[in-house]
């Protein structure tokens, strides 16, 4: 097995161990197919976001009411890819969003991003989230779908130390390591996913 395949295999194993869904795609178009199929097929794209069906206080309930559409948020895409996705969303009647994420505090259905690197040791995505809209897309979404180019998978966090250090010296940098879905075990040590962030993390390993 080639080094790269070994790393991708290890990355997949570790990410799946923390409940991430990992799939391989051959092109960006295939990634969009995955994204739209997921949105279509899964109940994530019901209009109401998770928790809104439960007994909530008046204020929290009112916030739920502000979400009236199925939303895919994908800030920070390259222009061509953005245009394609926006067009395909329109065809399927999903609201496409790439800015003003703050207006959607109630939640969006899917956040779609690209990772700069993957760390095989822990199944971790490294995402430069300095763009606030992009950052919020990874936080306020019910599902987070992230594309990770296979060539960017490294063995260990030390392997991207130089890259990270350079990134951190850019003005106003906010870098995220994301491993699996948002989780808590604060009540009786029982694992529950999706406490504040996404309920599901989907990683699309892109052949490149």
């Amino acid at each position: 097995m080639k080094q790269r395949d070994r790393l991708c295999e290890q990355f997949t194993r570790k990410a799946e161990a923390v409940s991430a869904v990992v799939a391989t795609v051959n092109s960006q178009d295939q990634a969009l197919d995955y994204l739209l199929t997921l949105c279509d097929a899964k109940e994530a794209c019901r209009i109401q976001v998770s928790g809104c069906e439960l007994p909530l206080s008046e204020g929290a309930g009112a916030l739920c009411e502000t979400k009236r559409e199925k939303i895919i948020a994908a800030p920070g895409l390259e222009p061509a890819l953005k245009d394609t996705l926006a067009k395909r969303c329109a065809e399927q009647h999903f609201f496409f969003l790439d800015r003003e994420m703050r207006e959607h505090g109630a939640g969006v259905d899917i956040g779609f991003t690209f990772a700069q690197a993957g760390i095989a040791e822990t199944g971790t995505l490294v995402i430069d989230s300095s763009n606030e809209d992009l950052r919020l897309a990874t936080m306020l979404s019910e599902y987070h779908v992230c594309v990770l180019p296979k060539s960017q998978v490294v063995a260990d966090s030390y392997d991207i130390e130089g890259q990270l250090s350079r990134q951190m010296q850019q003005p106003g940098n906010y870098t995220a390591f994301i491993t699996g879905a948002s989780r808590t075990a604060d009540i009786e040590r029982v694992l529950a996913l999706g406490v504040h962030g996404p309920l599901e993390l989907h990683i699309l390993l892109l052949e490149d």
Partner: peptide, 9 residues
């Protein structure tokens, strides 16, 4: 192995 999030600001 690692927490869900590590945030570098």
């Amino acid at each position: 192995l690692i927490t869900s999030y590590v945030t570098w600001i």
